[in-house]
Design a protein around this nucleic acid. Structure first.
Lengths: 168, 168
DNA sequence: GTATATGATGTAATAACATAACATTCAATG
DNA sequence: CATTGAATGTTATGTTATTACATCATATAC
């Protein structure tokens, strides 16, 4: 899991797009949100965010550490975990519980109850809005008197691109 | 995480009930299902299932190993993981991805897309049916051409009992 | 501008979770 | 009873995550 991205195609979340632009846009949004909320987007935090954005897929904490080391900034585990926790706790990244991995948020700043679609063939991770799912879940919980603080909704399967392929 | 149950009340999934009866019933159902499907419910597999049923909450693999050791049957990690994998793969238990823990299935045999409500105060885990959530998720995935193989839906929050309490 | 408080980072050590690999045993079938 | 395949026993190690404490930076009060 903590190895290099394997040879799989890199499907940037089911659709090709101008990735450089998408990275810059997301980084700018996070920067703005931090300014708004008086949060300190320190160099490491920013670098970890950029790594997640550049990869555009889920990375384990040790993958992030590997990237940092490659860039001549070797770091110990708590460094990665702290930066990731900062990003997650402020909604700039999400943790994929099924994978013990982290992914940059596709809509930083905006309120949303994300749903993740994880392709088991190419490892792409799409963050979907799916308000209906959150509503249904809230209703089910309410019916039994349970107060949801937060929810993880993660589906594994085949993305549009990989459904056609022979693979896996 | 791999420690003993702490002093918290043991809320057997939000409602008090005749637990001995509920354990026996679930065990019998699994036994029947195994007979039906020609599966081998070996002594270890059965014992692990019983441990999950008796605790009636999510246990880590090493919690199960501790229990086995207490009972004079010390075992190495693969033993627990193999038994748990058997139970999970046949729908007799579920894995809670958020907690790296396992819980006996509340409706073994029956087809269901479970939703888990995990109380952060008392650690009770309720398995809810919530067909609506699965439907909404399927719809959202279908809209982007994603084929779901399986889904993990896990909410963390306060159970009815703990909402009233001062605690956490 | 210096003292103090707070938050962030550096580092070492270790805890917690999980699997690979291979030997051995058991149970079913021919 | 020989063969085969599944299950288990065991060692070792890989992977993920945290605790604890030292150090450094930044902001505020005085």
């Amino acid at each position: 899991m903590s190895s290099k991205p394997d040879a799989a195609p890199q499907p940037v979340a089911f659709n090709s797009h101008d990735h450089g632009r998408c990275v810059r846009k997301a980084a700018a949004e996070v920067e703005a949100a931090c300014a708004d909320q008086n949060l300190r987007l320190t160099p490491i935090r920013r670098r970890v965010l950029e790594i997640l954005l550049e990869e555009h897929r889920a990375l384990g904490a040790y993958d992030v550490l590997d990237r940092l080391a490659e860039e001549g900034q070797p770091a110990h585990p708590p460094v990665a975990y702290r930066a990731l926790e900062f990003l997650v706790s402020h909604g700039f990244a999400h943790k994929l519980e099924r994978m013990n991995a982290f992914v940059a948020c596709a809509h930083p700043g905006a309120e949303h109850r994300p749903v993740f679609l994880i392709c088991s063939a190419c490892n792409a991770v799409a963050e979907d809005a799916a308000a209906g799912v959150g509503a249904a879940l809230g209703q089910a919980a309410g019916a039994v008197g349970f107060a949801i603080a937060n929810a993880a909704i993660e589906a594994e399967g085949l993305c549009p691109g990989c459904r056609g392929d022979a693979a896996i």
